[in-house]
């Protein structure tokens, strides 16, 4: 389950000491999912199809490989429509990330850029429900209690910078869902509705309880993630927003997923 960068990739990745090994996306087995945040008045159980999800957020190295092969998405070339002026702001050059940060999640990427990267890999951004469904599985795998999840999530938001930003590029299971970056999802712009109308309060005045399937700490934390990310502009390129890609499962998925280089 390991794939190697092509020759071109090796040439690009001169900053890394050894050939860069990238782990494959992990399979998220589908099933019933009851979203913790109610976007409709009725409580719904959703059927999630199986899909693949990157084990870790996309790294600087991977994103560099992408912009090298997609010049339109280089910092010097990106259209104003697709970013807020801070796109890849932390990179010292158009085609170089900061020294020693090959394995850090790429940040200062707009939602548009994240989607374009995933499309180039043969994937897409996960949907909000897919991401949260995977998040529940992750909590089970990692044995994270609901209380710890909520506590850590609010702690991360109140102080997102940690000294350790590297991700394990060899991860074989879901990693770093909460402790590195806030992640873009395809339908991140929340639309809270009330029948035909957009909800009048939209949960923006502390009225979160109306939108939770049950008022638990974990659900409240998840709602906070939904809501605060929903307030970003799709052009927003910030120091804490990153992403990972999802891939539909088809017969040849694993063999062909995204090896572009």
């Amino acid at each position: 389950m390991v794939k190697w960068l092509g020759v071109a990739g090796l040439m690009f990745s001169t900053l890394t000491a050894s050939p860069l090994v990238l782990s494959d996306p992990v399979r998220i087995n589908g099933g019933e999912f009851e979203p913790p945040v109610l976007l409709d008045k009725e409580r719904l159980s959703i059927e999630i199809n199986s899909f693949m999800l990157d084990a870790t957020p996309v790294t600087n190295q991977l994103f560099l490989d992408f912009v090298k092969s997609h010049p339109k998405w280089q910092r010097d070339n990106i259209a104003a429509l697709f970013h807020d002026g801070n796109y890849l702001k932390h990179w010292p050059q158009n085609n170089a990330y900061p020294d020693g940060q090959a394995d850090h999640p790429v940040t200062y990427v707009s939602w548009f850029a994240a989607r374009e990267y995933c499309a180039a890999k043969g994937g897409r951004l996960p949907s909000l429900n897919e991401w949260e469904y995977a998040s529940v599985q992750y909590r089970q795998q990692q044995n994270i209690s609901d209380d710890d999840y909520a506590r850590n999530l609010f702690a991360w938001y109140s102080q997102p910078k940690s000294d350790e930003q590297r991700v394990n590029v060899n991860a074989t299971e879901l990693s770093h869902m909460y402790d590195r970056v806030n992640e873009w999802v395809e339908d991140y712009q929340l639309l809270l509705t009330n029948g035909d109308d957009v909800d009048l309060l939209s949960g923006s005045c502390g009225d979160g309880a109306r939108f939770l399937s049950s008022f638990t700490k974990a659900n409240y934390a998840t709602f906070f993630r939904y809501q605060s990310r929903s307030d970003y502009a799709p052009q927003s390129s910030t120091s804490t927003m990153g992403f990972r890609c999802a891939y539909d499962i088809s017969s040849d998925t694993i063999a062909s997923n995204g090896d572009q280089l």
């Binding site: 092509g6 071109a8 092969s69 043969g122 063999a255 062909s256 995204g258 090896d259 572009q260 280089l261």
Partner: peptide, 8 residues
């Protein structure tokens, strides 16, 4: 020249 195979 940059995309060698698969789903390019």
């Amino acid at each position: 020249s940059q995309h060698k195979s698969g789903h390019e």
